[in-house]
Design a binder for these strands. Structure first.
Lengths: 353, 353
DNA sequence: CTGAAAGCGCTTACAG
DNA sequence: CTGAAAGCGCTTACAG
């Protein structure tokens, strides 16, 4: 009793780091304390209260490392992010983290840089996460080797937004369909010549988009090489708004200018639309512009920006269900690719050719 | 040897979960494997290679929980986020995570919901993080109790963007100065009547902003109650763009309309500016608008939006240095409040009254 | 309720 | 290089 008093009034009480210390502090056996901490039956209410009071006083928390060593589930999921700067990716992260937390899981979040991914995956494995989720675009070959590793470790994984990884399970927007929808909309308005803004490169998602554009053009007997034009090679992509602006200025100087511009994302589209407007072109009377992601800003431009909604809620809901089921089964299961249907949102930035 | 072969060719090899299993697989003693894993000297190159090959084959990772139980540092920092939806907060998170990772630390990221914060802090403690960083605005009283807890546990903490927590160490933008700068700019342009957009409530950061507004007005003998007007109570804040739009429409109906509008953030400012323009007001000829955060979009509106830059790089650099120093010392140190000087960026949305 | 013991997966001396 | 042993902080029977 006296000892306890002294501790409490001491200005720098020794920090309690183990149940042994803590049991001594409360004046109970380690075993008893452990039973209280784990809510086991057959304890006097007074004992329980004593322990709870002491926890509040000392701020003691049982060491998670010892707990999990003893076999308690880690209830952790590792999340590999392409980056934390792309708004739609962060929205997916936020939604996923909320879903996982609601089911009692903690998220370990790491940015997964090209080439340094192995380190992240290893770290997640050493933390004995119960699953790994990848959000964003990654190099398919690099990531395929991780998929094999994880399968060998019996660890479920899931790609959000990256389809086509051998052995990979994924939930992703049907970008091919999305671009076909955009193109059909523009073709229906009479456009036959298209400027592509930022849609280039070898990333899987870009190839999917180009395939969708090709599909739609083929349906009216146009060939993508004839009907589209890209000036992406002329500028460096840093700030997307600025990139869109630069691309638009270059397109404006072209002798045979496309009548419709299809952008990689909303930022590039808005940058381009503003640049065109500054140069005296009226949108959509003289030219049409489309974005991608349907962010809040699309409502804020004049005219509003036609864009594609990713249906993030549905994507993340599907992803959460999939991964939680697999965690529950304790097995990665077989590779599955779920596809989310995009939604074209038409606004004032697109009009008749 | 035969046994090893069998394992390797078996279609579902038993998952190796401990150094004991692994040592058996390689055909070495546990001690030897452990020494290789920890890069200790005095080992034959051939032995090292054997172990490395086996690691690649099996994907085995030593259990982090056992490592840390043995006394290895966790090298983890807990980050409590107000939310993952505010772009500047996420940018701070991204920068902080990068800085920490460069120093060998892993970030545990959790959203810290009002009232449920204790759970997050406890979880971080149980994971034996070496420090806890809070990013964003929180209830000062709630958070003050955690500060006391952490001090008792000898755990360093840091608030990014929340000053004024008793016992708290913080790095934060001088919002009072920021708003004084904005107001001096507008006063210099001849404005004497101001509409406040979204600057209301009892959060510390809001009080700081109002104090800055008051300071600037006092310098020209104006009283804040006379010179400013808020209509925040008339609308619900959900989508900030939309909120700005709604507020502007209400202000437009006022008989005595302010000539300058000072918004909580860029989104509200842009929403308001667009609404005013739609109603036929020209900006900045008939009225001025200012934002806050200086996001990329500020360059994208017509006219460009005058805004305040948070100097995120400097903020996060200061924060990283502070927290890493304290982790290094293994002690929370005494409460310190570092202040970051904001930078007013003047664009076309502000002009003479 | 107490107290002694075993064991989770590691590392680190220690003797061979 | 091997092998046996101790110990990190827990939980869980087990005997009292």
């Amino acid at each position: 009793m006296l000892q306890t008093r002294e501790r409490k009034t001491s200005s720098t009480p020794a920090v309690i780091t183990s149940t042994a210390d803590f049991a001594r502090y409360v004046g109970l056996a380690r075993t008893t304390v452990s039973r209280v901490l784990n809510g086991q039956p057959g304890l006097k209410r007074k004992t329980i209260e004593r322990v709870q009071k002491a926890m509040a006083e000392t701020g003691f928390t049982p060491n998670a490392y010892a707990l999990h060593l003893k076999g308690k589930r880690t209830a952790m999921v590792g999340i590999c992010m392409e980056n934390l700067l792309t708004p739609p990716a962060v929205r997916k992260l936020a939604a996923l983290q909320r879903n996982l937390r609601d089911q009692g899981f903690t998220s370990l979040i790491e940015v997964f840089e090209p080439g340094a991914g192995r380190k992240v995956v290893r770290h997640f494995q050493s933390m004995r996460v119960e699953a790994i989720v990848f959000i964003g675009q990654f190099d398919v070959n690099e990531v395929a080797s991780h998929v094999a590793d994880l399968a060998a470790q019996n660890l479920p994984h899931l790609f959000i937004d990256l389809a086509g990884v051998p052995g990979g399970t994924s939930v992703s927007l049907d970008r091919r369909q999305a671009m076909a929808d955009v193109m059909h909309h523009l073709l229906g308005l009479g456009h036959r010549s298209f400027g592509l803004l930022g849609i280039s490169g070898t990333m899987r998602s870009t190839l999917d988009r180009l395939a969708g554009i090709e599909d739609a053009l083929a349906s009216v007997n146009l060939h993508i090489a004839d009907a589209t034009r890209s000036l992406d090679h002329l500028h460096v992509r840093a700030n997307d708004f600025e990139y869109g602006r630069l691309l638009a200025r270059s397109f404006a100087q072209l002798k045979e200018r496309p009548t419709a511009f299809v952008a990689m994302n909303d930022e590039i589209a808005i940058g381009a639309m503003h640049a065109f407007q500054d140069l005296g072109f009226s949108v959509p009377e003289q030219l049409s512009v489309t974005g991608f992601n349907n962010q809040d800003i699309c409502e804020m431009t004049t005219p509003g920006l036609t864009s594609v909604d990713q249906e993030i809620e549905e994507t993340v809901r599907t992803a959460s269900e999939l991964i939680l089921t697999r965690i529950g089964k304790g097995s990665p299961g077989r590779a599955v690719s779920r596809t989310i249907r995009p939604r074209l949102v038409v606004r004032g930035s697109t009009g008749a050719a």
